Computed example of a mutant assay.
Amino acid sequence: MKHLAHARRTAAVSLAGVAALVLAGCGAQDDGGSVSLGFVNGSTTHFHTCLLHAVEEEAQRTDVTVYSANSKQDAGTELSNIEDMIARNVDALIVQTVNVDALEGDIAKAKGAGIPVYLTSVATDDMADVLGAAVVDLKKVGALDAGWIAEDAAGKKVTVGVVAGAPGAASDLLVGGFEDALPVNAKVVANQPGMFNPVKAQDVAENMIQAHPDLDYAFVANEEMALAVRKAFDAAGAEDVRIVSVNGTEEGVAAVKDGRLSATVANSAATIGQTAVRSTLGLLDGEQGVDKIADIPLVLVTRENLSEAPQYCPK
């Protein structure tokens, strides 16, 4: 694949003089590979940390140089990170966006520099300007949790609280898929953002259970928040509220096993990161049989199928 590092664009040549910039907030794994990738991560949650480790491990295994930056849930920082990666003259960008609405500007900026973009977790409506994507069907993730509630409620009228993530990001798709798939007997009585922050989520849960002491179920947009929500509910004497969540981390699966969570949907960060690097390299090199859009497998994990949960984070 050595030709990939040299046979592309001239649009970014003018940036070569600043390619040695030390990027604020950036890390790098540099093994002297002939292909260089920029990875722009969206946050510092457990998911994002595991995703970074997976990208770095797969890059090292394939003798690829990878530079990383973290946007910390800020769309402006994400665009700045994209610009910094352009300055490094990378061969392609892997982007875990903080906000699907920010992607249009990100992709346009990279396209103007002749650098292809590969997306993780989400895809755009128009993939014409995108190299590819490792996609988690976030609406389906939410729908799987809603399906568990539908089966568990068995037609009884029940109330549901939603602790979302950060508005405008993947959380919107998760919550939308969840609410759309709820049965008519399940009514959402509260929906507040926990910002993917356990401390914030615990505050939200405390207020939610005070306002709705007879709450039956809660959908929480990741397991870190869900475990904080569990603490808040238990402290308020609401141990019977059943919580469903997202990710399938080792801690999350353990919480399903011991009953703190009733179900979670596993979408392995390790698989996403590995797929992103492999597919990016394959698509750059024009390999046959590499899908432009790779669907990441999903597993609804309950006490009945704990062994089916995939490895979440690289060891």
Rank of each mutant, 00 (worst) to 15 (best):
M195F: 15
A146W: 02
G142K: 11
E179M: 03
S43Y: 12
V122C: 05
E58A: 03
Y312C: 03
A20I: 11
L15Y: 08
V199F: 06
H53D: 13
M85H: 00
P314R: 12
K111N: 13
A226Q: 06
G142C: 04
V301N: 10
A110Y: 09
A218D: 08
L283C: 10
L227C: 09
R88Q: 13
T302E: 14
T120S: 00
G161N: 06
V229L: 07
A226H: 04
D216N: 10
H48E: 15
A153L: 01
D240T: 11
A211Y: 12
A201P: 00
M208S: 12
G38N: 00
G155H: 01
P213K: 07
A5G: 13
A263N: 05
V220K: 01
A309V: 07
V90H: 00
F196R: 06
E151H: 03
V162Q: 03
A75I: 01
A238F: 00
I86L: 12
A164W: 09
H48F: 15
G273E: 09
A19E: 08
T44Q: 10
T97K: 02
D145A: 03
S171R: 02
A113R: 03
K187W: 11
L119R: 00
T249M: 05
P314H: 15
A16Y: 07
V204F: 05
G282A: 01
G161A: 07
V220N: 01
I107M: 08
N185V: 06
Q210C: 11
T249I: 02
G76T: 14
A16W: 09
R8V: 06
E179H: 00
D125F: 03
T264A: 02
I209W: 13
D180T: 05
S279M: 11
